[in-house]
Design a binder for these strands. Structure first.
Lengths: 202, 202
DNA sequence: ATATTTCCGGAACCTAGGTTCCGTTTAGTA
DNA sequence: TACTAAACGGAACCTAGGTTCCGGAAATAT
């Protein structure tokens, strides 16, 4: 779940602590959005989210001025989680680079496949710069790039693939898998194919 | 281009041949839609298509009772083209099965990547059955399945991949490539990765 | 307990895009 | 050329979904 609660009023505005009910609603909204966006994607009407949170739309808009801002809050949290996991793989210098990359990508794909919102965000990588979490995605790309370079250096994957290729393959696969309703097993098979495609030609 | 012109009135309705201007408009609409859908995808407002065709919306709706019906007409034509090409690869018993599959998939992917509408249609494979061209896609899957089986039998690709896997990988890749604006070269690289991922483990 | 201030809820508003309607135009025909 | 039926065009309509507004509740401060 991992929800941000602190600092809900603007910086340097020591006015007053947020009212108790307001805080409660804020979290209810985040929780509801997390659940519903994951299941149905961002296309879900905002009213549904409000209803699920047991709150009026007006209240929802008081906390998040825009549907996109709510979406952004959720996705940013999700990506933050991935960033943490990426770091673990990067720091674990024990395992071999090829395995580290593969393991991370599998995890990455697994999450993207079960959180509609996440992959909907990913598949926009490089499109409209307007979305504010694009810099989070940049960070993610950086980290994957580290793993990719190491794997390439170790000869575990081709040298001519770029990190953006990897992103495209994974997010594309997630997309297709999501839309045609394959099960977890089938999904991992797809990722497996992509991973073996990344290996150097024999 | 390849546009259907015949039989625009219902079957067994020998009433009268279509008026000349009507026929002309019909084709202008199809041509405009083909161009615009390919470029901008199905999401483009219907008014734009009408404008591009130099026709009022009313006229457009006289020829195609629904936006979806227009879309369907375009996509059906596109898929028909692919079916033809698939047959060529199937009939050409000279070339080796692995190469035939790869060549067809490359061509398939190339077309999907340059026709937004096509891949938007493909990525719905298996979702809503309502779209009437779903049976065309079935046909396509059948043909790809022939190529796949032969390639598998010849040992050119793994035996554990299903045709739906291939469809998912290709259409997913098209999707991602389309959304992140890679060039033709980058795109073929992605397809290449997928293709080599399909090969048996060394 | 009362005043003050924040917050709540949901009706109302606005926009975009698909679809329909109908007065006008034009092709086909005698 | 005049008549009729088919086709045209685009204003108007309808719906869905995001966003705003404001009178009424509810917390917190005094």
């Amino acid at each position: 779940m991992a929800v941000r609660t602190e600092r809900l009023q603007d910086v340097d505005a020591p006015s007053r602590p947020m009212r108790a009910d307001a805080l409660r609603n804020h979290q209810k909204i985040l929780a509801a959005a997390e659940e519903i966006f994951a299941l149905d994607g961002v296309a879900v009407p905002i009213d549904i989210v409000a209803e699920r949170a047991g709150v009026g739309v007006g209240t929802l808009y008081r906390h998040f001025p825009t549907k996109e801002s709510l979406y952004e809050a959720i996705v940013t949290t999700r990506i933050a989680g991935l960033l943490g996991q990426a770091d673990e793989f990067i720091d674990d210098s024990a395992s071999d680079p090829g395995a580290a990359l593969a393991a991370f990508l599998r995890e990455f794909a697994r999450q993207a496949s079960e959180k509609q919102d996440l992959f909907e965000a990913l598949e926009q990588t490089g499109v409209d710069i307007k979305s504010r979490f694009s810099e989070r995605i940049e960070e993610l790309v950086e980290k994957i790039d580290v793993l990719r370079r190491r794997a390439a250096h170790a000869g575990a994957i081709r040298r001519d693939v770029e990190t953006s290729d990897i992103m495209n393959l994974i997010s594309g696969t997630c997309h297709a898998a999501g839309h045609s309703g394959v099960d977890e097993a089938g999904f991992q098979r797809l990722v497996g194919i992509v991973l073996s495609g990344l290996q150097p030609a024999k």
